[in-house]
């Protein structure tokens, strides 16, 4: 099937424009695994969800690939695709950086958000894309996260956000980027008060302002194997003259220290989401809930 077919077009919303980024597979036929050095046939690597066939290293993937891996074919509707960054600080070179990032990624900013089905269960889904300025959060990403949450509340849908390469707060928007941390976390509080499920998926790398706000506030935090996740960058920490322990700031390190619920292999991610969603029936499966809006004893039968 064509990748295009994944996205059902609906006139009310702007669908993902795929024309600028048709090639899923890099031009090079072979890709070298940065961990084990194995030469990987690009097509095979793509079919393997961009996981190294030899050592299981999880390559970073762009937001569109992520959505195609998680969302049922043809069910994704994108929202707020028209949001674009301003240069509120008149930060030198920011406009150039933005237009370059738009060309490289085919996106208007570092996040795609919308609604789609996961094994037939609807959810609001947001994915951050590392290819757009390192997946950093400025006003647009912050606004998209909050609008996703507002949509979840309005439609009583679960929320899934993949911090796929969240590089932290975007420096070029200065204090306004920092305030997106407050804004998104405040919105998560509202989502929580509405008793709606929020699954945060942390992929490589999730750092700084993104991890220190909405990305760490999931009811369930899931990380991909080997993903680098942390508050401060390792180079900054090394300056404190502390010797970094092996595996520092990896998904496994965070699991060991109690910061995340589980580390899930990319091949099992969608199935894991399905299971979790099944445990959280809400209005979309009316027969599964009792008069208090809570799961009925027969919800899973």
């Amino acid at each position: 099937m064509a990748f295009k077919d994944l996205f059902r077009s609906k006139p009310r919303y702007v669908t993902v424009d795929l024309s600028t980024k048709k090639k899923e597979i890099p031009e090079a036929l072979w890709t070298k695994c940065p961990i084990c050095g194995q030469m990987l046939y690009a097509k095979e690597l793509a079919n393997n969800l961009y996981i190294c066939m030899k050592c299981s290293y999880h390559f970073r993937i762009d937001a569109k690939s992520r959505i195609s891996q998680l969302v049922d074919e043809g069910t994704f509707i994108e929202f707020d695709a028209e949001l674009q960054s301003k240069n509120p600080l008149n930060f030198k070179g920011y406009e150039e950086k933005l237009s370059k990032a738009q060309k490289v990624s085919g996106l208007k900013d570092a996040m795609i958000s919308g609604e789609g089905m996961i094994y037939g269960r609807p959810a609001v889904i947001g994915v951050i894309d590392f290819n757009f300025m390192g997946g950093s959060m400025g006003s647009v990403v912050g606004e998209k996260v909050v609008r996703s949450i507002e949509r979840s509340i309005e439609k009583e849908l679960p929320l899934i956000i993949v911090s796929g390469g969240g590089g932290g707060a975007r420096m070029q928007e200065g204090i306004l980027s920092l305030m997106q941390m407050a804004k998104t976390s405040a919105a998560v509080a509202r989502l929580s008060e509405a008793r709606l499920l929020y699954i945060s998926i942390l992929t490589d790398p999730t750092m700084g302002g993104i991890f220190a706000s909405f990305a760490s506030l999931g009811d369930i935090n899931i990380a991909e194997p080997g993903a680098v996740i942390g508050f401060a960058g390792p180079r900054v920490i090394e300056q404190t003259r502390e010797k970094l322990p092996t595996g520092f700031q990896t998904a496994e390190f965070l699991l060991e220290h109690g910061m995340i619920d589980m580390v899930v292999h990319r091949k099992n991610l969608k199935k894991t989401l399905k299971k979790i969603l099944e445990f959280h029936p809400k209005n979309h499966c009316v027969e599964d809930i009792d008069s208090h809006g809570l799961p009925s004893p027969n919800a899973l039968k």
């Binding site: 942390g230 508050f231 502390e242 910061m259």
Partner: peptide, 14 residues
């Protein structure tokens, strides 16, 4: 930005 701070969840605390 230190090891202990990361181990004890600096980002999550904030």
């Amino acid at each position: 930005p230190g090891i202990g701070a990361e181990e004890r969840g600096q980002a999550i605390a904030i």
